[in-house]
Design a protein around this nucleic acid. Structure first.
Lengths: 211, 211
DNA sequence: GTCTATATCCCGATAGAC
DNA sequence: GTCTATCGGGATATAGAC
């Protein structure tokens, strides 16, 4: 009953509280240190309570992933918008992407290292879309109307940012400021190099590898 | 006693058998489906037996990672050696790297997605070294004696291969042959683009960012 | 030095009462 | 929607047989 004296706060939105708490737990202890049981304990609810809101552990992780994409979007777009030239905008995004990975490692890992089956969680792809769109704007401006080339460039830029981020993260457990700076600049420079030689990214053979 | 009639094979090398079985299990069920208990069950030994040979689950995973680096080395060097031009060699490595990730996903994940703390398992870094050396040979040939540039190039190439591999892997659960071909060619082309614009990878400011 | 047997604790998940 | 109770499984530690 809703009598006063209950130890922890019950409220109308356990679902939201669980996402919040999961994010905190992952930030504190990493992905491996997170469990439904521990999150329940923090909120003062029974271990079975989360199952009223999430199918299983992965379903909660997927909700955290959706939030992670919102955070990453919020971290990338402002730096990008400081520039008007497409190449500058892409370089700024690459830099911001690497910085985000360094500063929000647990969230980054939820997205890419958690073993989530994204095909079973379409919400995640939906949450990724705004980011991709901001990003494809820059790419199209550099592709001179060649849509196939635009696709190739988009893949190459994303792979570059992600590759540099992961390389940095497994280089050292806790990258210090200068290591992050170096990695971010490397990603930005590689991005500019790809812009410069973008014609080499085009598919040489037949047309229409895919739509 | 070594009397006949024992159910499963006991032998003198439980350690090697565990590494073998762990690799099989991970290949069959993925990283998340692997446990020390299950590996023990397969070998017909007690769940506590592995602890005579490995400190814990991660310690066994680290041994598997060492083997994974041996496999990756064996998969990358022959394709590379089909060419003599450094740019061709690097492109061949990028292609082979992506193909390895597609064809040996579980091994690839043990290396980069298992959450292993590599600083606690120096054997892994040692196992990685031969690969890096083969690879740095190509890079130096393209750096015109500029050692700082060589470092930057090495990082950029590795990030490119890794980024394309990861992008492919989380694009689809089981990439079909043509998806793998496309990803491998993309990695090879991005590599050539970076070779072409490699001067942009150099650090513009002061000398000696690191040794 | 290698393995068995056992015991504890934590986690994920389900069933049924309120 | 939440709780209590419970099940099965895995990680880990220890004691002792060979």
């Amino acid at each position: 009953m809703p009598r006063p004296g209950n130890k922890r706060y019950h409220h109308g939105d356990l679902r939201a509280a669980l996402i919040e708490t999961a994010a905190e737990l992952i930030a504190e202890r990493g992905l491996r240190g997170f469990s439904l049981a521990e999150a329940s304990r923090r909120l003062g609810v029974a271990v079975s309570a989360p199952y009223a809101h999430f199918e299983d552990r992965d379903d909660l992780l997927a909700a955290v992933a959706v939030r992670a994409f919102e955070l990453i979007h919020a971290a990338l777009v402002p730096p990008m918008d400081e520039f008007s030239e497409p190449a500058d905008r892409l370089a700024a995004m690459a830099r911001a992407y690497v910085r985000f990975a360094a500063g929000n490692r647990p969230m980054f890992e939820v997205l890419y290292v958690s073993g989530l089956d994204k095909s079973r969680h379409p919400e995640i792809e939906a949450a990724e879309r705004p980011l991709n769109e901001a990003f494809e704007g820059c790419v199209r401006a550099l592709a001179d109307g060649d849509d196939d080339l635009a696709v190739e460039m988009a893949v190459a830029f994303e792979a570059t940012a992600r590759g540099h981020a992961m390389l940095m993260l497994d280089g050292e457990a806790a990258p210090d400021r200068s290591a992050v700076d170096v990695a971010a600049e490397r990603a930005a420079r590689a991005t500019r190099a790809l812009v410069e030689s973008r014609s080499l990214l085009a598919i040489p053979s037949s047309r229409g590898v895919q739509k």
